[in-house]
Design a protein around this nucleic acid. Structure first.
Length: 656
RNA sequence: GCCGCAGUAGCUCAGGGGUAGAGCGCAUCAUUGGUAAUGAUGAGGUCGGGAGUUCGAAUCUCCCCUGUGGCACCA
């Protein structure tokens, strides 16, 4: 006999060799029907798997989050079975669950089209209707490899071969279809709710390596019931409305066009956001002991050779020959013989040149050198994405030259500045990552040990939770990465903080120590926002375009109701503008309803409505975005100025 | 760069081997209206580019470009 303990503390004794299904049936017929999987001492197991030992048991139904995960996993299996039935010769590979759904990677010469989805979904429903039991089998490694090899499933055979020796090899069978899988699974295909849909088709490299074969990945989403599915699809549509590319058009912020692929044309409204953000960071860094510099766009290739980037990243640099182009139309414009320069992809070597200019003393350290540096990188075409991934971008960059002993304090100091800036911007969901030494790297292990320890200690002292990203550091040092999420849940790196013992060496930067000898400084590369472009994209999506007043391009729209008050409207606008607010007037011959709608849709935070009443008593009616007409407030022009100026003050200047 | 999808008016999109469509926007006129679309009239596109099939291509085929969703990459 064994004894099972239930979540409510009850204990029951069962014959050794009973299954989860037996236990559920023993409790109630309805539970027997609803049970999908059991959790035994924290391990999820198939309902029909024999329970050999005593332990804590939990019987999971569709209401449990873990069960939803299983449903998604089973959906992936059913998808694979459907695809193999419909497209003979297709090989299966892996099919895990992801947030909100699942995918499955297939190998097939001819690939697939989204036009195939309807037929595949129909077959999936048929497989569910077959309600075939899903059974677990334990196989020996060699037999399993032989089985899949015989079936022509070379990818599966490779997977098994690479499993650790200790791993138990389990196969799951549903009807005639069999797959290598760790499990667990639902008892039968019929338990899968018909609340799934295939969403998209994409290429994905086998084992994530671009040298390997390209597989065909089908993504799907699956839920407990059709209502949940509909809700999820609706949420996706809503999220798309926050897309910065769409809002960028609607709010007249920026555009991109073929002739400057991957670069942004900032319109007046968009550039106003840029300026507000840039000036904010400029104030914050100045206050924190940085000095701002400006360095050249075009630099001789020797700097990139020295830094090591020429070797590693030359294929994504814009290289420019230093040569007078041919004046005539005949023949090539450039001979190609000129010495090579490159548009800077980063600011570091240029900052080192400033550091090296004139002798530096240990008394100058830490030396914090900042630049809003415009950089160019020839990103792969498939990587370009709105403002998030561009070929020309501006970093709120800075380099701190310091001694080894100063690294910890500087890191803590930076983390404080960083956290406070993001707080002011209203961004709270930040993922901190510590990226450690990559396989190919410069510098000794001892140096890396020291650098990684310093960053981890600073994070701990700053009280920040972080995740480790082993092997993802830069070749010259470990990094801290600061990631933010866009409207549809994609994660983007914004800020960065990198420790570098290599570049000062390679570019021969030194300072005179108290001992009178030359020493190497440590270089800290850091950016709070990262790329201005990407950060603004994130801000737009975070606020769904409804930017706080201090960031909004147009803060107030003064709108007369009839044309008799046009002159007064202009006076009000002039008074607000004189107080430093960004104001426009809408004197068009349109009805007030129309104007309110239009300015609300273009996300202008405050509409100042003026009519005859306001003209008579020298007032304005302020209508705030999202609050509606009921919450509008009447006040004198002077009161409006006081109130709006207060709201429009950047967070770092409040109370000053 | 790789795989899927898309490209028709400024924007959103319909259409589809035989004279290019709608709504919004824009222009003009009328209207002066108190809080999310006033009405009328008009202008605007050789349907992303190139080649091919055809009597005839925006439509079919191929190549290229760009965008887009992923994958890979991201100093």
């Amino acid at each position: 006999m064994i004894e099972l303990v239930f979540p409510d503390g009850h204990r029951r004794r069962y014959a050794k060799g009973c299954t989860g299904a037996d236990v559920a049936a023993d409790i109630s017929p309805s539970l027997a029907k609803a049970a999908l999987v059991v959790e035994l001492d924290g391990e999820l197991r198939d309902l029909n798997r024999v329970i050999e030992v005593s332990g804590a048991i939990r019987i999971l139904t569709i209401r449990d989050e873990e069960a939803l995960e299983l449903i998604r996993h089973d959906c992936a299996h059913v998808l694979a079975e459907a695809v193999q039935e419909l497209f003979p010769g297709t090989q299966v590979t892996i099919g895990p669950t992801i947030t909100h759904g699942f995918y499955y990677d297939f190998a097939r010469e001819d690939g697939f089209s989204t036009d195939d989805f309807a037929a595949i979904e129909k077959r999936m429903v048929e497989i569910i209707d077959r309600d075939q039991p899903i059974t677990r089998e334990v196989w020996s490694r060699d037999d399993a490899i032989a089985l899949f090899t015989k079936m022509g499933e070379t990818f599966k055979a490779e997977l098994i071969r690479d499993l650790p020796e200790t791993e138990e090899i389990t196969l799951y069978r549903q009807g005639n279809w069999v797959d290598l899988c760790k499990g667990p699974h639902l008892p039968s295909t019929g338990k899968i709710p018909k609340a799934f849909t295939l969403q998209k088709l994409a290429g994905a490299y086998w084992r994530g390596n671009s040298n390997n074969e390209m597989l065909h990945r089908m993504y799907g989403t699956a839920w407990r019931n059709p209502k949940e599915l509909r809700l999820h699809l609706h949420q996706l549509e809503e999220a798309e409305k926050r897309d910065h590319r769409k809002l960028g058009r609607d709010m007249k912020l920026f555009h991109a066009q073929d002739e400057a692929q991957g670069s942004i044309f900032w319109h007046a409204n968009g550039y106003q956001i840029w300026l507000a953000v840039e000036n904010y960071i400029r104030r914050r860094t100045n206050e924190d002991g940085y000095r701002e510099v400006k360095t050249p766009q075009l630099l001789d290739k020797k700097f990139w050779e020295l830094s090591g980037h020429w070797e590693k990243f030359r294929d994504s640099m814009f290289v420019v020959p230093d040569e007078v182009p041919a004046a005539g139309d005949e023949g090539p414009v450039l001979s190609g013989d000129g010495p090579l320069m490159a548009l800077k992809p980063m600011n570091c070597p240029a900052h080192v040149q400033i550091f090296k200019h004139g002798q530096k003393s240990y008394r100058d350290l830490p030396l914090r050198m900042a630049e809003f540096g415009c950089c160019h990188r020839n990103e792969p075409h498939g990587a370009l994405h709105g403002l998030m991934r561009v070929r020309q971008f501006t970093q709120d960059d800075a380099h701190i030259f310091c001694t080894d002993e100063q690294v910890l304090d500087e890191t803590i100091r930076f983390l404080k500045l960083f956290a406070s800036a993001y707080d002011d911007m209203g961004l709270t969901q930040i993922k901190y990552r510590l990226a450690t030494r990559p396989v190919i790297r410069a510098g000794s292990d001892e140096v890396w040990d020291r650098a990684e320890t310093a960053l981890a200690e600073a994070l701990n002292k700053a009280g920040l939770e972080y995740e480790l990203a082993p092997g993802e550091g830069a070749f010259y040092g470990p990094k801290l990465e600061f990631h933010l999420t866009d409207a549809i849940g994609r994660s983007w790196q914004c800020g960065t903080y990198q420790l570098d013992y290599v570049l000062p060496e390679r570019l021969d930067a030194s300072y005179i120590g108290p001992d009178g000898d030359k020493h190497r400084p440590v270089m800290l590369h850091r950016a709070i926002l990262g790329s201005m472009e990407r950060f603004i994209g994130i801000l737009i999506e975070h606020y769904a375009g409804n930017l706080p007043l201090w960031l909004a391009p147009i803060q107030v729209m003064v709108t007369p109701i009839t044309s008799d008050v046009d002159e007064y409207a202009q006076q009000v606008a002039d008074a607000l503008a004189a107080a430093g607010l960004r104001v426009e007037t809408d004197l068009r011959n349109e009805k007030i309803n129309y104007k309110i709608r239009e300015h609300s849709l273009s996300k202008i935070p405050v509409i100042a409505v003026v009519g005859r009443t306001e003209l008579e008593d020298g007032s304005v009616a302020l209508r705030f975005l999202g609050a509606g007409a009921r919450h509008q407030v009447m006040m004198s022009v002077n009161e409006a100025i006081t109130r709006l100026c207060e709201d429009a003050t950047p967070p770092d200047q409040r109370g000053k």
